[in-house]
Write a protein that binds this DNA or RNA. Structure first.
Length: 629
RNA sequence: GGACAUGUGGCGUAACUUGGAUAGCGCAUCGGCUUGCGGAGCCGAGGGUUGCGGGUUCAAAUCCCGCCAUGUCCGCCA
């Protein structure tokens, strides 16, 4: 369901077109309609301009003709034509009554949708290798994943948040070499931080001594046997490291449902089944000669270009699978093309009370048999392999392959260049570019601003409040931009909490709460009584003021949520929060609520509606607002 | 070399899918507002030939073609 006023306007115009011109082909009427702000009218259609060519008449005449045929509706107090546009004023009382009623009865469900009813969506993120802490470049990934997962859940999807852990790759082999050959005392550091620093040291050593690389390759081969001592040792290290990474995740209120391990995929023969299926469809062959002799490769046409130089290896000549080889197998499982009876057990109890489940060599059957929608949150650097993956699956099962979506995002760089786990550019002098340090310093900054204010509530806990403000600042900053846009990290910008920021929206939310408290309106999200609803007399004091503009804006909530869901763009909702917050700021300055005379009850209801909508949308971005800050 | 992506005031961005009224917003700059319903705020000013050139159209930031610039990928890395 989109906006009821837009629908009504669309229907009126649609009927008028039929009446005046018969069954002509109307180009997407709904896209010609806009709700507008700060003008004499509230809703507008440019359909007459679009029909001009078809009807061979001037837009002005068409608009006039349509206007004559538009029926009366209680929703609109006036409909006119200007320069070929058909513009309408909304009935202030009808809009106010309808929107307030919707929000104050639906409460925390206001804006939700049934778009994905009955469908299971699997979101994979962030799948960071377990040999280092999350750095700020990684962070955008789980923030996008978490927010999209919230948004899709709000649209009635059943969501599964998946983390894929690569415990058998080269990077872990290097770690194991380090453990055997370097000083190794992880006791006084966060474990992922410790591994990350060692990883940088190991890579320096590799550059100095070619022999080391050979030793690492030997370890890598031994690890492929998942029952080997090496594989077990590395799994242990990896589990400990992932738990350390999740400490970081929990600070940011990020949680998962399922962890799937590369080693379990190999143990359960998923790769073999995938290769069999590819072979059955004649999509792979063993290279007989040339530099790829002995490798199992994908037919070249699948990479989108029949380029001999661009062959994709799935199995190396020594039989060890490549990343792409494993990835194709993983996605056959995700989409339910191959079913695997994975065993599972609890990995960790998360602070929100939910359990993250992990695949395992023993335990109970994993409750997952394939997704209706599989979303990969992966950086734009991997656009090509993601395309190869999808093209390959298209041939195996075109229907299911259509359910695979790559949400591609621009990677984050530092001013001084790329952020690299291997070379150690994530290590700084006073501050590391890790998610942990970003959090730490943003909290410090938030606390500094908080304590410098002269209006601190005595009943708040500055440490807790600073954390929540920091979370809002970081998440909002990274989510407010279109995912595809690449970012350059800058401490000054990250620590700026002025408008167009998370703290700004949080501040407006806190204001609504304080006004409602003083106006004695219950703002508990879970209360089920509707005492706050208004009668006709209260509504009759509605005017064309900022309060009315706010309600108009709030009425667009559902369509903004669906847009964010359909386009996989949380920034749509961040923009929406800014619009609401800014308009509420004006409303607050220009229309006194508590001293609003006859309009006080109405205005309190508007404030409550703003509060509820801000709350609902902030939560979709993974930001938990505070009633005072 | 090929493929893909991106180019919007000094900086950061929105609108591009679906062409439509004066290109919206923030930062920075300049000026104003406060004993208030919480100033992390509000009001105002200056700042744009939407990378360049062509085309389609009554109408182009938006669609098409060419060029330029930047980034990414093109490995028996992941």
């Amino acid at each position: 369901m989109s906006n009821i006023f837009k629908e009504e306007f669309e229907n009126l115009i649609s009927d008028a077109i039929k009446k005046q011109y018969g069954n002509i082909e109307v180009p997407e009427l709904r896209y010609s309609i806009d709700v507008v702000f700060g003008k004499d009218w509230d809703i507008s259609s440019s359909i007459a301009l679009k029909l001009s060519k078809l009807l061979k008449k001037s837009p002005k005449i068409i608009a006039e003709e349509l206007l004559k045929n538009i029926k009366h509706s209680n929703f609109f107090s006036e409909i006119i034509s200007i320069n070929g546009y058909i513009n309408a004023k909304l009935s202030v009382t009808e809009l106010s009554r309808y929107v307030l009623n919707e929000i104050l009865t639906k409460k925390e469900l206001y804006g939700s949708s049934d778009l994905g009813k009955g469908k299971v969506v699997l979101l994979e993120y962030p799948s960071v290798n377990p040999n280092k802490p999350w750095h700020i470049g990684h962070l955008r990934n789980p923030l996008l994943g978490d927010s999209l997962s919230n948004i899709l859940k709000f649209c009635s999807y059943t969501t599964k948040r998946l983390d894929y852990i690569e415990d058998l790759g080269l990077q872990m082999a290097e770690i194991l070499w380090g453990k055997k050959n370097l000083d190794w005392d992880p006791s006084d550091k966060k474990y992922d931080q410790f591994l990350g620093e060692k990883y940088v040291e190991i890579n320096k050593r590799i550059k100095e001594d070619e022999e080391i690389q050979k030793q690492i390759n030997q370890i890598l081969k031994e690890m492929e046997d998942t029952s080997s001592k090496e594989a077990k040792e590395i799994r242990e290290i990896a589990e400990k490291s992932v738990k350390a990474q999740y400490e970081t995740a929990f600070k940011y209120l990020l949680y998962h449902d399922i962890l799937i391990w590369e080693s379990d995929i190999l143990s359960e023969k998923l790769l073999q089944k995938s290769l069999d299926l590819l072979s059955k469809n004649s999509l792979i062959y063993i290279e007989k000669e040339g530099k790829l002799k002995g490798c199992t490769v994908l037919k070249t046409s699948l990479s989108g270009k029949a380029d001999e130089e661009n062959k994709k290896v799935l199995l190396r000549s020594n039989g060890v699978p490549t990343y792409l080889g494993k990835d194709i197998a993983l996605h056959m499982w995700k989409l339910g093309i191959i079913k695997i009876p994975f065993k599972s057990k609890e990995f960790i109890l998360q602070p929100d009370g939910s359990k993250a489940i992990t695949t395992s060599s023993s335990g109970y059957p994993l409750d997952f048999t394939g997704a209706d929608l599989a979303i990969n949150i992966i950086g734009s650097a991997q656009n090509e392999p993601q395309t190869v993956l999808k093209n390959t699956l298209e041939i195996i099962d075109s229907k299911k392959a259509k359910n695979l979506v790559h949400v591609s995002y621009g990677e984050l760089n530092l001013k001084e260049g790329k952020i690299s786990g291997r070379s150690g550019t994530w290590l700084g002098n006073e501050r590391n570019y890790t998610a942990d340090d970003l959090f730490k310093f943003t909290v410090e900054r938030a606390k500094e601003i908080l304590l410098s204010g002269d209006k601190i509530s005595p009943d708040i806990n500055p440490d807790e409040v600073s954390k929540r403000i920091a979370i809002s600042a970081i998440k909002f900053d990274l989510l407010k931009i279109d995912p595809i846009t690449k970012l350059t990290f800058d401490w000054d910008r990250a620590l700026d909490f002025n408008s167009n920021s998370g703290p700004y929206c949080m501040y407006m939310y806190a204001r609504t709460c304080r006004i409602l408290e003083k106006g004695k309106i219950n703002n508990n999200n879970n209360n089920n009584n509707n005492n706050n609803l208004l009668n006709d007399k209260d509504i009759s004091f509605a005017e064309r003021d900022y309060g009315f503009e706010l309600l108009k804006l709030l009425s667009l909530c559902n369509e903004r949520v669906e847009k964010a869901a359909n386009e996989y763009k949380p920034n749509v909702l961040a923009e929406y929060l800014i619009e609401i917050s800014a308009l509420f700021g004006k409303f607050y300055e220009h229309n006194s609520v508590l001293k609003g005379g006859d309009a006080t009850k109405l205005r309190l209801a508007i404030v409550n509606a703003v509060r509820q909508t801000l709350y609902n949308i902030l939560m979709l971005l993974g930001i938990e607002p505070l009633s005072s800050m």
